[in-house]
Nucleic acid binder design. Structure first.
Lengths: 244, 244
DNA sequence: CTCGCAGGTGTACGGCGTACACCTGCGACC
DNA sequence: GGTCGCAGGTGTACGCCGTACACCTGCGAG
């Protein structure tokens, strides 16, 4: 009974296999459904086996981010800095839309992993070659913030209340209009084709690019001021004195 | 032994007391240190007692955010839209710096609470009175994103490796320079006064205002285009057709 | 006087991350 | 060819978490 029966003796684990399985599970079942125990089960292995390949759950998450960030393609060479940055960030966004859990995890990381450093380095390089001073580059990276990684940190998409029957919904609408008239006006205008206030209603991709372009245009303008004597962001501007 | 001894029979719980205690604990011990059990213990009560005042932990977090957001002061009346928005957001930032855990919690909320709606409503109102069309207001809110709440969603502040003895640190610096030259250049320039690459080194407040001003200036420009015939963000512009 | 109910309690369950001791099978080396 | 070490998988156990559910208790309304 125990001879050559167990046909597939199960491919051996490896850090890579663990990470890929974790990413897959998070993709299809969400981040909450990703526990060391469930992941181990999915790999046909006892939970503690994972710890031979990742130090702990934090490092698992680090590794998962590395996998995801590595999916962001290199920029097409030859374009201007703005097109290159824009294209790359939109690519990052496409990647992150494939892995909806990733934004939350990226936010929670405390120190960068190799793939993120590679990405950052390349992005910084693009700006520097585009004529940005070191300092302006620094500010630009901060200003882009999470948009660098392709997500936008939306405020609440969902109205309160969720779905309810139309009658109470109409009632809630009245409440809303009374207490938060401006929010209501905006929500109604945005979802003008829908009958109700609910639903995403707004085009996330548009909003993302809208803000991205404001930032890129603003940075472009500042870049042009660079270099002239006393220019705003010439190399080594005086930093504001700390602690005032 | 059990007469009038237990001098303070403990003030009765209330939703408000629970929320304030939770905020206090998170402030001083961090979000990870906030569990229903610990919170109950701090209130001198058995864990399940809390559930008479909040439905579950999610609702506890919602309530905590409400407490924090309510601390954001109303704008001084009479200023222009830009000054009003700017001042209010900087106030929000001061509040959030007092409650470092709050940004993480805000991000994780799924539907808004009363105080956040109040805040949003007021912010939208300021923009509308400042001459923004409904649509441009909508885009503006999205573009500001988490900056509305006073946080900026920073990319990693901390370099990899943490603190180590100077020798290995110098070694790591070499590694860094080899693999990530642009990141290293930037990091060195930013922390030019420190001897090492580590440390925050950069002025978060400056970075925050830098990005904020780019956005506000960009929005201002778009606002000026409004209203003229065929203007970019006149009322009811054609939305990009979805799904292309 | 009693009845109901808001508010506090006790016990228990299932899930989590992971420390620690253990086993096992394979490749290196004498 | 025998031994040894060690990488990799196992089993058990601990302490923490959120919270369901039944229970008690004391107070104000009737």
């Amino acid at each position: 009974m125990d001879g050559a029966v167990d046909a597939l003796p199960r491919a051996p684990l490896s850090r890579d296999r663990v990470l890929r399985a974790a990413v897959a599970r998070a993709d299809e079942a969400g981040l909450d459904a990703l526990s060391m125990r469930k992941l181990a089960q999915e790999l046909g292995v006892v939970p503690m086996a994972l710890y031979k390949h990742v130090a702990n759950k934090e490092q698992l998450l680090d590794g998962m981010i590395d996998v995801v960030v590595a999916e962001i393609e290199d920029p097409a060479p030859g374009a201007g800095w703005k097109a290159a940055v824009r294209q790359r960030i939109l690519c990052a966004r496409r990647v992150l839309l494939r892995h909806p859990w990733a934004s939350q995890v990226i936010e929670s990381r405390v120190s960068p992993t190799p793939a993120t450093l590679r990405y950052l380095d390349s992005m910084i390089g693009t700006l520097r070659r585009g004529g940005f001073s070191v300092d302006l580059t620094h500010h630009a990276i901060h200003a882009l913030g999470s948009r660098l990684w392709g997500f936008s940190q939306e405020v609440y998409n969902e109205p309160p209340g969720g779905e309810a029957d139309p009658r109470t919904q109409a009632l809630m609408l009245g409440e809303m209009r009374a207490h938060y008239p401006h929010v209501t006006e905006l929500a109604m205008a945005v979802s003008h084709d829908d009958a109700s206030v609910v639903g995403p209603g707004c085009d996330d991709q548009f909003e993302f690019e809208f803000a991205l372009d404001i930032l890129l245009d603003g940075l472009d303008r500042l870049r042009d001021l660079h270099g002239q004597p006393g220019g705003v962001f010439a190399e080594r501007p005086t930093r504001p004195v700390p602690g005032t």
